[in-house]
C-alpha cells in the first residue's frame, strides 16, 4: 500500500522529471525547435496564416499511422504557383515531417500521406509560393496512444 509520504515523494520525482525533460529538450522537440526548423525554411520572410488547409483527424487512436493531407489555394500557373509544402510538429522527436517540392505541373497543390504523431499537439503546414511569400495552416490533434517512442509498436 502506498503511504501518503511515498506518494508525495513519487509525485515530486515525477514533477521534477517532467520539468527536467522540458528544460533539456528530452526526446521530444519543443515548440521553439519547431520555430527554428520553420525559420530554416522561411528565412526572414513572414509567415501569414491562411490559404493552407491541413486536414488531420482531431482524435487519434493509432498515432503510428495518421492520415494527413495538405491543400493549398493556388491557381498553379507558371506565374503563380506553390513551390513547396512543409509540415512541422511541435512535440515529435524531430520537428520536420515532410517537405514536398512542386511546380505548376502539379495542377493542384494538394498532397496526402500518413504520419506518426508522438503526442497531443498542433501540427503546422507551411506553403512557399512562387512570389516568395509563405502561408500556413494548422491542425490540433489529441493522441490517446503515443508513437515514435513506444516499444514493440510499428
Amino acid at each position: 500500500m502506498t503511504s501518503r509520504r511515498n506518494f508525495l515523494i513519487a509525485a515530486g520525482g515525477l514533477a521534477g522529471g517532467i520539468g527536467l525533460g522540458s528544460a533539456a529538450g528530452g526526446a521530444h522537440a519543443t515548440p521553439d525547435e519547431m520555430q527554428a526548423a520553420i525559420r530554416q525554411v522561411t528565412g526572414q520572410a513572414p509567415v501569414r496564416r491562411g490559404r493552407v488547409k491541413l486536414d488531420m483527424p482531431p482524435l487519434i487512436d493509432n498515432s503510428n499511422s495518421v492520415s494527413l493531407s495538405v491543400t493549398v489555394e493556388s491557381p498553379m500557373t507558371p506565374a503563380d504557383h506553390v513551390k513547396a509544402i512543409h509540415v512541422f510538429t511541435e512535440k515529435n522527436p524531430l520537428p520536420n515531417v515532410v517537405s514536398v517540392f512542386l511546380g505548376p505541373r502539379a495542377g493542384r497543390a494538394s498532397i496526402a500521406t500518413r504520419v506518426r504523431i508522438a503526442d497531443t499537439q498542433t501540427v503546422t503546414a507551411i506553403a512557399e509560393f512562387s512570389d516568395g511569400s509563405f502561408w500556413s495552416g494548422t491542425a490540433s490533434v489529441v493522441v490517446t496512444l503515443s508513437a515514435c517512442l513506444e516499444e514493440g509498436l510499428i
Binding site: 503510428n64 499511422s65 515529435n92 524531430l94 520536420n96 515531417v97 517537405s99 512542386l102 505541373r105 498532397i111
Partner: peptide, 12 residues
C-alpha cells in the same frame, strides 16, 4: 514533377 523529402515522422 514532384520531389518529397521524408523524415522519421512518416509512417511505416
Amino acid at each position: 514533377i514532384m520531389r518529397a523529402e521524408f523524415h522519421s515522422a512518416i509512417a511505416a
